[in-house]
Each structure stands twice: as structure tokens, then as C-alpha cells.
Design a protein around this nucleic acid. Structure first.
Lengths: 347, 347
DNA sequence: TTGTAAGCGTTATCAT
DNA sequence: ATGATAACGCTTACAA
């Protein structure tokens, strides 16, 4: 009774050495049992287990880190810790890592390559056992170099290297799906709002858009593609630009949901109804898009799942395996922001 | 030249001892300089500084943690790391802590008191120097106890204790503001969607709603208050329940933005326009609400700023001060989801 | 299979 | 003001 309370109130002060003493074995034996480093007789195993339970022993990760060189912590580089997109990924990572006794150390690159490099330094100085990079800006060669000193898992690219696994979602296919959907509904003049130009996801999504158009015998009209920056505001601005330039369009495909949301607002402001006057498709299927008004048709990007996969790949890497990660294929989620194109598109 | 590259590629292998040797002083002197623990002659200071720069020495936080008992890391307990609300707070915390050389360790309680307790154990076993709790479920007395062994900063309550600082936003006043706004617009039948019942923020917001009503001579109608759970879905359901029960209302005040967003969708589905048919107010001013269709009128909750304040309070606590934290007062942000009540509310 | 002892890179306690 | 010399709590050769 008394013990339970203590274990929750005071810092765990019991040391491995005390456990050893209590069990009548040597510290190394206890350590071996804890880490499965070597075979230990069932007999001692039992005594030690009892002693651990009795004393409420919890190994000290800090000491472990110093002695063993492993800290049981994994650095995770995101671009923005707030953001529905990264939030979901972090959630997936936390769950998978936590189940294995590892803790994530989250840092934000804030879209600057420089910041990102600083993040890596921080993580390294903290002696993380590995680094997961969620769609960063670092060059492929920088990643390869990094992987020479640490296991690395990176999302958003296709990259082969030792000690490194990359998880890549098929953005092109996803964008193709979205565009095809619009085409199938009879839309011919489909505007596209792009993402951050240097961002690999963004360029792939634009490629998918183009490919679908071409496959349908439609030729991409440069006047229909607007630049965006993956933010709501940029989506709003993009649509405003489009309307100011007086190009006709009956549908908009935005390279991510946040921009689609911004686009919806711009349309609303100008009195163009979604989906009655213009159809709208996003990308990512971020948590909020299901509750947009109207609910947004989008391409589901299993971000949280990818986070989990990334974490598992890292765990496998740490275990000395050479994991092959398979990312789920994109699926189109049809909701209420798209509909059949009107018989005669308005001039 | 060569050095720069190495510092970014290999793990920092230079030890304090090597610096000492290189500078011709003892390790203790180097340590003292690093920590400002004692006076050191300008002379040695300079030599050591040079040696540190020359060798590219970076102190090892793990070793520091073992020897000194401080890890320069702060545990942060959130309820959901994904979530626009907590995301913003984490962002504020990360920025403030990072500037001081501290790293946050984020863990999610997932709204379970039990999980939350486990989180604390994890953080403690990692030897964090302090714990920031963002609106948790732990009892006040549990927090007091915790504060006896570790500096604690907690948001979402008013609590006085040694080694503990609480930051409390005035939810009641915020809710009052929101309700008054609706009343001033001529609304008389104002529905309220509550939050998680055990959540202190939720009850205060409901109190504010009631107070504003009473202050205006309106008596709260139990049929107008619906239970919610701080999620979009629960907001949607709440409005559906309200409409199914056929109570009249010309305005809805939701205890947070996410529920307001859900409410907006339910209204949209039933063909009731916002704000033409019913006015809608949220709470928190989460990132997305500015881009809702229509943009949501809400109470601004400076979450990111509060995160920063919490971090600074923690830093002050660690420095042995007794910080007084002042949280900004709530402000109403009037956008486009509210308008004058119609002359004769529909039956 | 198990124990002994030497680290791991700092900080802290004494002396001087 | 500065230097030895223990810790800190655990892992890991190396022995036995």
C-alpha cells in the first residue's frame, strides 16, 4: 500500500545495484536479464524479477545512455509541430515508439534547411539513437552522409542507402486520381493550386495533375495553374488571382487540403458556390476536411499510419534488420465538394 | 574547412577531458567555465574557450544528466499531440525552451488520467528537470505532490503551491463575451454546446454562458444546452439532437471551435444557413476557424502565447525564482458567422 | 552461466 | 582560483 504511493511520488531511487544485492546476484546478471544480452538461468531470472518488483526498480535511461551508448530516444524532425498534417504523423510515431519503450524527441525545422541542420545538431548532441525526418529539405546526399553515423528514416522521397529507409507516398498517383475524378464529372477547365515549389510532394502532385489532363486529351493551360504555399491563406490568394485574371474554370484541385479550404473561402466571398458553381478537391484528407462546409472531396494520405510505419522501420533498423516499408496506395475520398459539371460552363 | 564538415557528419566525439588537456587545465576548470559554477581567471577562460572552439567540443547532455542530475530537458504533457489546440501550445513551448538550451519531451495523455500518470512516470524516469502540464486531468493534490519532487507548471487551473505555477486563462469571461455578443445582436434563444464534462475549461465556459444570460435577464433553458466532447463530431451530433428535439434557437455558442465547426456542418445539412438563419460562435480561435465558411466568430485564446509563458515560468522556476504569470485577457473576434437576429424568430 | 572490474563524460566534494 | 578524486547508474569486455 505504502509502496504504491511512493512509486508515484518520489523519483525512482532504486538502483540496479540494489536489485542485484537484494537478489543475491551480481549487477551484470541483472543487466543481462534486463537487456537479454546473454542467457541467464531460470532460477536467477526469477529471483531478480521478484527483487525488481519488490523494490519497484525502474532502470535509469540516462545512465543507460552513458554506459551503453543508447538513449532509447529517437529524434523526429518535422516542419511545424502545429499543423494538422504533421500532428497526425507525430501521433503515429509516438504510439509506435512508445510501445517499444522508445521516446520521440520532436523538433521543428520550420521549412528552413538551416534550421533543419541545427535540429540535427541538437538531436545528435542529445545522443538520439536514430532520426526520423518527415519530408525535410535536406539534400539526398546530406541524408546519405547522416545515415553513415545514425539510422535514418525519411518520408517523402525515394532514396536507397545503407542504414536508411525512405517511405514514399505516391503523390503523383493521388493527384491523378483527383484530377481524373474531376474529368469524369465532366470538368474540362480545372485549375490547379500548387504547393511550396521546392517541396518534392508539391511537384509530384502537379505532375499527376498534368498527366491526368493529358491522358484525357486535355492540354494543360498555364493560366489555370496558380502558385501556393501549402497554407490556407495561399490557397485563398491563388483563387483570388485566378478570378482577377478572368480565366474560366469549373473546378479547382488544390495540392493540399489547407489550400483547398482557403480556396473555398475565396470562392464563397465571390459568391461562387461549392460544388454548385465550382467543384473543389484537396489532398491529404487532413482531420478537418471532413467537417468543412461542404465536406471536402480529397485524396486520403494516411499520414498517421505513415508515422507509425516510419517508427517501425526505425525500430527495425535499430534491431539490425533491413526493413522494406510499403506505404498504402492513395485513395480518393469523394465527399460533397465536387459534382457533375454544368451542361454549359459559364463564360 | 575540414573541421566544419566533420562537425556536421560524425557524432561529436570530443570530450571535456580532451579540452582540458588541450588547454593545459584540469577538467574541473573546464566544467566550471561551462557552468559558471565558480570564478575562473580570465586567462584560463581564454585558453579553454580557444580549445573548445578548436576542437569543436559539445558537452554531452547525457553525461551531464548522470553526473549533475540535470538533463536540460522538460517534460510536456498534452492530451493530444495532433489537435490544432495543443499543437499551437507546443509550438510556443518549443520556441521558448529552445532559446534557453532546453529541449521539450512531449507525451500525450489522451484524456485518460491513467495514461497521464504513466506519462509522468516516463518523464521522471527520463530525469526531466521539470514538467509542464497542459490542462490535465490530475487532481490538484496529485499536482501538489508532484511539485514536491519537481518544478511544475500547469495550465487551466488556479492553484497555489511551492515549486508550482499555474497559468489560467479566463474562460468564464471569454464565454461571457461570446454570449453577450449574441445577446447584443438580439438573440434570445441561444443554444450552448458544452465540452468534456470533467474538463475544468468546459465547466467555466458554461458558467460564463449562464452568467451572461442571467445578467441580461434571460433565464437559461436546459433544453438549449447540449453535451459535447470538444470534437467536431460531437458538435455535429449536439446540433442534430437540438434540432431533433424541435427546440427553437437562433444562435449557437459552442464551447470550442472544433465543436462549432461540427455544428456548422449539421446546420448546413439541415439547410439552415450561417449566419442568415442561425448565428454561431466558437471558442479558442484555433488556426482553421479563420478560414471556415463562413469565417467563425470566436473568443481568442492565445494558446501559443500561453505555451511560451508556461515555458518561461518553468525556466524561472528552475532558476530558483518565484514567477508570477499573467495570462492575456480574452478578446472576442467577430467574423462572419454571427449577425443581427431576424425580427421574428421562426417557430 | 555468472562475477569482477573498467569504463561512459560530466559534475561535485574536498583539499590546496 | 584550481586540481585530484570520487561519484552518477548502467553496460560490457574479460575472467572464471
Amino acid at each position: 500500500m505504502h509502496k504504491v504511493i511512493r512509486s508515484r511520488s518520489g523519483p525512482p531511487k532504486v538502483t540496479l545495484e540494489q536489485v542485484a544485492e537484494h537478489a543475491g546476484v551480481s549487477p551484470s546478471t541483472v543487466s543481462r536479464i534486463l537487456n537479454g544480452t546473454a542467457d541467464v538461468s531460470e532460477e536467477k531470472r526469477a529471483v531478480v524479477a521478484k527483487a525488481i518488483a519488490r523494490l519497484g526498480f525502474v532502470p535509469n535511461p540516462v545512465a543507460r545512455g552513458l554506459a551503453g551508448g543508447r538513449t532509447l530516444s529517437i529524434g523526429v524532425i518535422t516542419q511545424a509541430i502545429d499543423s494538422p498534417f504533421y500532428g497526425a504523423a507525430l501521433h503515429g510515431i509516438e504510439a509506435a515508439l512508445g510501445a517499444a519503450g522508445y521516446s520521440p524527441l520532436f523538433v521543428s525545422g520550420r521549412w528552413h534547411a538551416e534550421e533543419e541542420a541545427r535540429c540535427i545538431d541538437v538531436l545528435r548532441s542529445r545522443r538520439v539513437d536514430g532520426i526520423i525526418i518527415l519530408t525535410g529539405r535536406l539534400s539526398d546526399s546530406a541524408l546519405r552522409t547522416l545515415a553513415r553515423s545514425l539510422p535514418v528514416v525519411v518520408t517523402g522521397r525515394r532514396l536507397k542507402a545503407a542504414n536508411l529507409v525512405s517511405l514514399d507516398f505516391d503523390h503523383r498517383e493521388g493527384a491523378r486520381l483527383a484530377t481524373q475524378h474531376l474529368i469524369a464529372l465532366g470538368h474540362r477547365r480545372i485549375a490547379f493550386i500548387g504547393g511550396v515549389a521546392e517541396h518534392p510532394d508539391a511537384v509530384e502532385r502537379e505532375q499527376g495533375y498534368r498527366e491526368a489532363l493529358e491522358a484525357a486529351g486535355l492540354k494543360p493551360d498555364p493560366a489555370l495553374v496558380a502558385a501556393g504555399a501549402f497554407t490556407e491563406h495561399s490557397g485563398l490568394q491563388a483563387v483570388e488571382g485566378l478570378m482577377a485574371s478572368r480565366v474560366r474554370f469549373s473546378a479547382v484541385f488544390a495540392a493540399n487540403d489547407q489550400m483547398a479550404i482557403g480556396a473555398a473561402l475565396a470562392l464563397y466571398r465571390r459568391g461562387r458556390r461549392v460544388p454548385d458553381d465550382v467543384s473543389l478537391v484537396g489532398f491529404d484528407d487532413v482531420a478537418g476536411s471532413m467537417y468543412a462546409v461542404p465536406p471536402l472531396t480529397t485524396v486520403h494520405n494516411p499520414i498517421q499510419e505513415i508515422g507509425g510505419l516510419a517508427a517501425q522501420a526505425m525500430l527495425a533498423l535499430l534491431a539490425g534488420e533491413r526493413p522494406e516499408a510499403a506505404v498504402p496506395a492513395p485513395r480518393l475520398i469523394v465527399r460533397e465538394s465536387t459534382r457533375q459539371a454544368g451542361p454549359a460552363p459559364a463564360a
